[in-house]
Structures are given as C-alpha cells and as structure tokens.
Amino acid sequence: MHVLIINGSPRVKKYSNTDKILERFTGGLCEEGSGEGNTFEQYEISDKGQWDTIREEYYRNSNIIIALPLFVECIPGLLMEFLESLKVREDNAAIAYILQSGFAEGVQLRCGETYLEELTKRLGCEYRGTLVKGSNFGIRLTEGKARDKITAPYEEMGREFSKTGNFFSDKCRAFTGPEVFPAFVRFLLGIMFKTAGRKSFDKAAKSWGCTLPLDYRPYD
C-alpha cells in the first residue's frame, strides 16, 4: 500500500505536534514484517511552496490520509484554503483522517469529525474514517520519554491502518479514550489545573522568554 499523507497543520513542521504524531504513525505503518512493502510520502500544508506538488500528488494518489489539529471545533483556516483549491474527484479515491487536539476528551473532537465525513463527500472521495485523539498539546512542551509517552501509541494505529486501510475498527474507536471524564477525575484534574497545571504552563512560558503573567490583559 502506498499512502499520500498530508499534514494539515498550519504550524511549521519543526514544531508541529501533528508531524510528531505522523512520525510514529508511519513508523507503525511501514514496520518490518506487518508493514512490509508499505510506503508513504508526506507533505506539509504549512509550506505554501509545496501546495502545487501536494495538489499533483492528491490527484495521482487514491489512498490519502489528512492529519490535522482541531482549530476552533473544525479544520484550520489554512487547510481550508488549500482544500478549496481542489477539484472534485470522480475516480474512487479515498481519504482517512487523523484528527488531534489539545483538549483530552473525545467529545471535544466530534464536531470536527462530523465535518470531515461531509468534506470527503464534497471532494468526491470515499470516507475511510477518522482516528480521533486529544491530549496532544504537551508534545511541543516535552522531549524524550515524556513526549514518547504521548506519541508512541500512534505506532499501533499505523499497524492497524496497514491491516485495514481505514480507521473504522474497534481498536481505532477505543484509541480515542473517554468521551468525558468521570466526575471524580474531573474533580482531581480541576485541582491539578489550579496548582501543578498552572505552574507547568508558567514554567513553559518562562522557557519561551515570557516575562508577563499568562492571564495578562494587553488591551484593557
């Protein structure tokens, strides 16, 4: 199987969480043994210099994955701009999606997921499902084992896609995790957000050179 992978994140590749996810996913997809013979090519929507090539490859390939971060409940404006430039296909091409977000609960991504199915129809393609997973904001703020803990599970999803060619399996559905957290988990996380969570964001901001409080109001 050859897969065209489009990273739909507007963030440059170097800092793209979606790219780090794809590194692991494609590792599983093309793994020796189960993924023997699988190949892929990947392009970045964040680089407008690649858009002509992406369009050419989009029309040439029939097995496509678009990976994207959730931006305000749906797809990022930049990816929308690219998609608007595509012609409707009538040659049995199929698209599957990897939809990722910062918020952790599955329910946060469902509105975006619904649109991706409609989008696929409008592009004249067959919908092959969406791999839905949140809790990915930390990828950019971590390194080494802490980052691996977030991204490594995507390898298994690459193996799964290699077997099925879609994201419809029970394994893929379960990958999302809880739709909402139980009340006691929300209670504990709520405390964590006010204490350790705030501290970790403050620390990250300091390392980025921020000297202001994160709730600063520049336009008051």
Partner: peptide, 15 residues
Amino acid sequence: HCIGCNHCWLKTPGV
C-alpha cells in the same frame, strides 16, 4: 490564517 504558534498563550500573552 492562524499559524498555531501559541505565542498568544505562552510568549506574549493576549497578543
């Protein structure tokens, strides 16, 4: 378009 840099949250809050 938004470039997803997160500067408005972590580097220059609110800007």
